[in-house]
Amino acid sequence: MKKLLILLALAMLVLAGCVSDRSITAAVTADDEIKIGASLFLTGSDISFIADAMREGIVLATDELNANGGILGKQIKIIYEDDQFNLVKATTVAQKLIEVDDVSAGLVGVWNTAKATSTVFETNERPLIVLWDANEEIEKVGNHVFSIGFQTEAAGREMAEFLIKQNVKTAAIVYHEDDWSQLISLSFEKRFKDLGGQITIKESAAIDETDFRSIILKAKGADSLYAPVAANWDKFFKQVYEVGFDGIVTTGDGFTEDVINIIPRESEGVYTTQLFVQDALQYKLLAEKYKQKYNKEPELLIFTALGYDGVMVLAEAIKIAGSDDPKKISKAMYKVQNFEGAAGIVSINEKGSSNKLERIFQVRNGKMVLIQ
């Protein structure tokens, strides 16, 4: 009915010579679309290749939905923006997506920039999904910010528990002056101490630091090194090897197979918490969809899966709401339960998170091997 009234009104204006038929086409096209903003760290970071993988997943999901009639009879339109892994830029991008593009909802890649993006979306009561991260800070933002990623603090606790089970008594912590790195380090430290472990040193480095040797030297003598660094992984772990740290070396999920390929010798034996969903049916199906679309093997499929799921979870919420009204979508997000995503089951709890947990891997012969 709304569309019919718009058409009639515009047709009358055309007859009166006030607007062109091109304006009618634009108005109807806009009315047939659901706009979703995607703020990704496409430049400005050592891990921008991960954002590229997320974008590939967003494209796959959008194409799939639109080929099947869209949502509520409307086509999905993704508006991509590069937040450059920068808080100021992320704020500007978020404001543009809402004030200029008038998106119904948004996706953002990682908590580092989502801190800024989420504030803008929450203030304007627009739903926003953080793709990679889930943490207690995201849960505090408000009722319109959600996460479908893996719990940061839980990963730190899991590694601490693993080391204690290996009879490790002491640990040195090296982390970056970065939100994710600080959160996961704090959770590791607290759990390790609670279980009777001792922290020998805790040292931070600037995010753009490239020479870690003096810090690593301080860590020598500890039974283990926990280093959830957020950039320059190849340089850091190469220097750990060169300095001759002879304890157990552990890290977080920024340590990807790409890093292993760059420094295979220095990566050998490193333990890491990682996203793991390889056994999920939807994950396997996504791999086939990826190969058909891009004519190549996926290299970072888990991150592609997070991008894919972001769109699909929003689509599910829009279906539940029966509307693309932002406030109704936000309310419907809490009703998304047991959704079978490519990156695992998504069930949004009362805090807006999906409570996914990572697993522990060790690098063996150049490959990540599941340990527990």
Rank of each mutant, 00 (worst) to 15 (best):
I262T: 14
E257R: 14
F255W: 03
Y290H: 03
P298S: 11
F303M: 10
L275E: 10
E299R: 11
N261Y: 05
E268Y: 09
D279L: 06
G307Y: 00
V277D: 13
I262M: 09
Y283A: 12
D309M: 05
L285R: 13
A287P: 03
L301A: 09
E297R: 05
E257Y: 11
M312V: 04
A305W: 00
R265F: 10
L285P: 07
F276E: 10
I302N: 13
E288R: 08
L300E: 14
I262G: 05
Q292I: 09
E299P: 06
Q274T: 12
V311D: 00
Y308N: 04
L281V: 15
D279Q: 13
Q282Y: 05
D253Q: 11
L281R: 12
E268V: 13
M312P: 01
Y294I: 10
N261L: 11
T273I: 06
L281M: 10
Q274N: 15
A305R: 01
N295L: 13
Q278V: 14
I260H: 00
L285A: 11
I263P: 00
V259N: 04
Y294A: 09
P264W: 09
N261E: 11
D279R: 12
L300W: 04
A280W: 02
V259Q: 04
E257L: 15
Y271P: 01
G310A: 07
D253E: 13
K289G: 06
L286Q: 02
Y283S: 13
A305M: 05
Q274L: 14
E266V: 13
A287N: 07
A287L: 06
Q292W: 06
S267M: 03
G269R: 01
V259A: 13
K296G: 07
N261Q: 14
Y290K: 00
T256R: 05
Y283D: 08
G310M: 02
E297V: 14
Q274S: 15
V259E: 02
I302M: 12
D309H: 05
K293H: 10
L286W: 01
V270C: 03
L300F: 13
K293C: 08
T256K: 07
F303N: 05
V313R: 02
N295I: 13
L275G: 11
V311M: 02
